[in-house]
């Protein structure tokens, strides 16, 4: 399982990667915004994307749009982990095709639950 973690704050990338490692996902890479992430996704053979929303360059929602518009990436599971908590934003993310939405600050249990749910649905 190859996972890409996208966040403009390096501390948050480290936190998410460490939590993923605790959950048994050791093959992770990171990018600091959508612009850096998109070419990595297009060439890298990733199985799962964890992204923040508010980032300079290219935001997470634009990255999600680009992923859903790319025939090779259209089915890539995407978990949004963000401090953006407006109802209209959550609805927009859902409409754009996000697979899970976690608001910061979050717990390790929440992250695990959402990831489990995403893969349950895909496997099921």
């Amino acid at each position: 399982m190859k996972i890409l973690v996208v966040d403009d704050f390096s501390t948050m990338r480290r936190i998410v990667r460490n939590l993923l490692r605790d959950l048994g996902f050791t093959n992770t890479s990171e990018a600091d915004d959508g612009k850096t992430a998109l070419p990595m996704l297009q060439t890298g053979g990733y199985d799962f994307l964890v992204t923040d929303w508010n980032m300079p360059g290219m935001t997470g929602i634009d990255l999600l749009k680009a992923v859903r518009a790319d025939p090779k990436l259209v089915n890539l599971p995407v978990l949004m982990v963000t401090a953006e908590a407006k109802r209209e934003q959550i609805i927009l993310a859902a409409q754009t095709g996000v697979n899970g939405y976690v608001i910061k600050p979050f717990t390790a249990a929440t992250l695990k639950e959402k990831i489990d749910k995403i893969f349950e649905r895909i496997d099921g």
Partner: peptide, 20 residues
């Protein structure tokens, strides 16, 4: 100890939130 380390790890999330 491992559970405590996870708690310490998560506590560092403040840097992102306060930074924003």
């Amino acid at each position: 100890v491992q559970a405590g380390l996870t708690d310490i790890l998560l506590a560092q999330g403040f840097q992102d939130i306060t930074g924003q």
